[in-house]
C-alpha cells in the first residue's frame, strides 16, 4: 500500500471511502517557472469538487496536468487507485476523464454532430459507429438539437460551451473536469449550465472537478479547494465557505 497522504484524508472526509481522483505532491513547471507547488487534493466518487483561486494561480495548469497535457516534474496522479502519471491524454480519456477545457476547444471545421460523435472516442471500445446522438444530451442542452449540421467554429461562445460539455458527456466519463465553464457567458445560460452539471452529478453519480468563479455555481459543489500561488491553501465543505474565504479567493 502507498503511504497515506493528507490528500487521501481530505478526500476521504468527502465520502469516507477511497477517492476516485487522487493527486499527491504535484510539482509542475513551465520551463523554469515553478507553477504548481506540492499540490495535494482529491475528488471522491460521485461528488462535485470545486477549485477556486484568483487569475493565474495555476488552476488550468493543474487540470492540464490531470489530463496529461503537462508532465509534472514530481508527484503522482491516480485515478481509481491506479497511477496515470505517465499516460498520454488519450489513454486518460479512455480511462474515464472527460475534459471541458477553458476556451472550449471545439474542433472548428467539424460539424456539431461530428464534434459530439468524437466524444464517443473516450468510451473504452471507442468505435465511432453510432450516428444517433442520445436523447439525454438534448435534454441537458436543447440548443444543440437544432444545430447539428452547423460548423463547430460558427457557434456562439455559450453554444460552444454547451457543446464542449455535451461532447465530454458523450464518452460517459467517470470524472468530468470543467475549467471555467461559465467564463464570458450570460447569466441565464450560466444557470442552465449549472443546472445541467448538478443534474449529471445526481442522476449518473459522475464525479465532477470544477474550476469556477461564480459564487452561486461554487456553492453547488460538495467540497472546495482554494489555491494561491500554485498551492492549495484551504479546503472544506462548500457550506462552510466563509465570506472571508470567498473574498480572498474568488475574483468576483
Amino acid at each position: 500500500m502507498r503511504p497515506q497522504t493528507d490528500t487521501a484524508t481530505t478526500a476521504s472526509v468527502q465520502t469516507g471511502s477511497e477517492p476516485l481522483l487522487d493527486i499527491a505532491n504535484l510539482n509542475v513547471y513551465y520551463g523554469e517557472s515553478h507553477i504548481l507547488r506540492d499540490v495535494d487534493m482529491g475528488v471522491a466518487s460521485g461528488k462535485m469538487v470545486c477549485l477556486i483561486g484568483r487569475n493565474g494561480v495555476g488552476k488550468t495548469t493543474l487540470l492540464k496536468t490531470i489530463m496529461g497535457l503537462l508532465a509534472p516534474r514530481a508527484g503522482a496522479v491516480r485515478l481509481g487507485g491506479e497511477s496515470i502519471t505517465r499516460l498520454t491524454p488519450d489513454r486518460r480519456a479512455k480511462l474515464g476523464i472527460g475534459y471541458v477545457p477553458q476556451g472550449r476547444e471545439i474542433i472548428p471545421r467539424l460539424t456539431v454532430k461530428e464534434n459530439l460523435i468524437l466524444g464517443l472516442e473516450a468510451r473504452p471500445k471507442g468505435a465511432l459507429k453510432t450516428t444517433e446522438i442520445p436523447e439525454e444530451i438534448f435534454e441537458l442542452f436543447p440548443v444543440l438539437k437544432t444545430m447539428l449540421s452547423r460548423m463547430g467554429g460558427d457557434l456562439s461562445g455559450g453554444q460552444q460551451q454547451q457543446l464542449s460539455i455535451a461532447r465530454a458527456l458523450m464518452g460517459k466519463p467517470r470524472l468530468l473536469v470543467l475549467d471555467e465553464p461559465t467564463e464570458g457567458i450570460q447569466p441565464s445560460i450560466i444557470l442552465e449550465i449549472e443546472a445541467a452539471v448538478r443534474k449529471i452529478v445526481t442522476t449518473t453519480g459522475m464525479s465532477v472537478l470544477l474550476v469556477e468563479q461564480h459564487l452561486h455555481f461554487v456553492r453547488q459543489a460538495d467540497w472546495y479547494y482554494a489555491m494561491q500561488k500554485g498551492g492549495i491553501v484551504a479546503s472544506g465543505p462548500t457550506h462552510e465557505l466563509s465570506n472571508e474565504v470567498i473574498q480572498k479567493f474568488l475574483a468576483v
Binding site: A93, K94, P101, P108, L110, I117, G119, G126
Partner: peptide, 23 residues
C-alpha cells in the same frame, strides 16, 4: 471514422488527444 479522427487531429491536436483519439 478514421477520416474523422484525422480531420480532428489536423485541426486541434491536443484537444483531440483529450477526447481519447489515439493521436
Amino acid at each position: 471514422a478514421w477520416g474523422l479522427r484525422i480531420r480532428s487531429v489536423t485541426q486541434n491536436r491536443s484537444m483531440s488527444a483529450c477526447l481519447g483519439i489515439p493521436t
